[in-house]
Design a protein around this nucleic acid. Structure first.
Length: 327
DNA sequence: GCGAACTAACCCATTACTTCA
DNA sequence: TTTGAAGTAATGGGTTAGTTC
């Protein structure tokens, strides 16, 4: 897979709940957005809204774009991200929480209730597909095993937990969570509950999925960074090798041409008219002229950079060189 | 105002399980 | 059929910040 890392301002396009998503309509999604930086702790207010971070985000573009759902194409009509549905003017309808008796009874392991809050983000969701009592067939392409898992999920959850059951999320669930993650990498409690309800999962599962997803994102970012630093290191090593070689050559040149040794100057320039070399000392701020008649070498700048011919910077220096040479 | 206790949310390392070559 | 690697859901501990007393 080809990876491309781009740094830029991306988070502004992605808002939460109250603003539309500004994905280009006929263009591929902007890739894999990493914002905010996971190296930083967020304040609780930021956690609560999952937006409004003033820190410039880091965008990681993973190419080719992973085959996750696009808002225009996916998810299917029965799987709408609540905030997207609301923002994009989808056919959202008021959710009657009484449709989810099992959910209100269960309501997740975090002990929060979502049934009665008038401000709950749950209410305007389009909830066409499933309820907590496990009508797993509505996930469409879910296979038999997944259906069995979904049907047995509630009972498994209520067991004493002696054995750790690992439930595989269905493709639709994963895609839906992925799409949500693209919009915001953290969830507030209401969003978490809403997602859990829509996906027929426990809030804890949604929470864990987002945690693991953030961890995977960070891991990918680390790999990209590592690769980038590796290339930087290789480039610098090569550059260092080249400079060392150049330094050796210059030292050899100096030893074979002793007159260079007398020069405190770091810059040698040649007067194009008299063909004399002028040295511009940076330490003494004094210009001296060396007769170049017997020398066949080109004037060079004695530095650790690539040697190059130096023109006289201006006529004043050239006149000064003439003056010193003639005196 | 200050600090201890509590809580919630998160990150991180790790485990446990599933899938696939 | 077996097996090891990779992927990932889940767990537990630690940290941080907000709230309450």
């Amino acid at each position: 897979m080809e990876l491309a890392l781009s740094l830029g301002d991306t988070s502004k396009s992605f808002t939460f709940l109250d603003k539309a998503v500004t994905l280009p309509p006929n263009k591929d999604p902007p890739g894999f957005c990493l914002a905010p930086s996971f190296a930083e702790k967020r304040s609780d207010s930021e956690r609560g809204t999952a937006s409004g971070s003033s820190d410039p985000p880091v965008q990681l573009d993973l190419l080719p774009f992973s085959p996750v759902l696009r808002p225009q194409q996916h998810p299917p009509s029965h799987l709408r991200i609540p905030w997207l549905t609301q923002a994009c003017g989808g056919a959202a309808r008021v959710l009657d929480v009484n449709l989810f008796p099992a959910a209100t009874a269960e309501d997740g392991d975090d002990g929060t209730s979502l049934s009665s809050s008038p401000n709950s983000a749950v209410s305007p969701f389009q909830m066409d597909f499933c309820t907590r009592n496990g009508n797993a067939a509505e996930f469409g392409s879910r296979n038999k095993r997944e259906q069995q898992e979904a049907e047995g999920r509630a009972s498994d959850d209520d067991e004493n937990g002696s054995t750790r059951k690992k439930l595989r999320l269905s493709k639709e669930q994963s895609a839906f969570l992925e799409e949500s993650f693209k919009e915001h990498t953290t969830l507030n409690p209401k969003q978490k509950l809403a997602l859990a309800k829509q996906l027929n999962l426990r809030p804890r599962q949604v929470e864990v999925w987002f945690q693991n997803r953030r961890a995977r994102t960070k891991l990918k970012q680390t790999e990209v960074d590592c690769e980038y630093l590796k290339r930087c290191c290789e480039t610098l090593t090569e550059e260092n090798r080249r400079l060392q070689k150049e330094l050796q050559e210059l030292r050899a040149l100096k030893s074979s041409q002793p007159f260079y040794m007398q020069l405190p100057a770091t810059t040698l320039t040649m007067c194009p008219s008299c063909e004399r070399v002028a040295t511009n000392s940076t330490t003494t701020n004094q210009t001296s002229i060396v007769n170049n008649n017997a020398s066949s070498q080109i004037p060079v700048e004695l530095s650790l950079s690539k040697p190059r011919i130096l023109p006289f910077p201006n006529g004043q220096v050239q006149a000064q060189a003439h003056q010193i040479a003639s005196s």
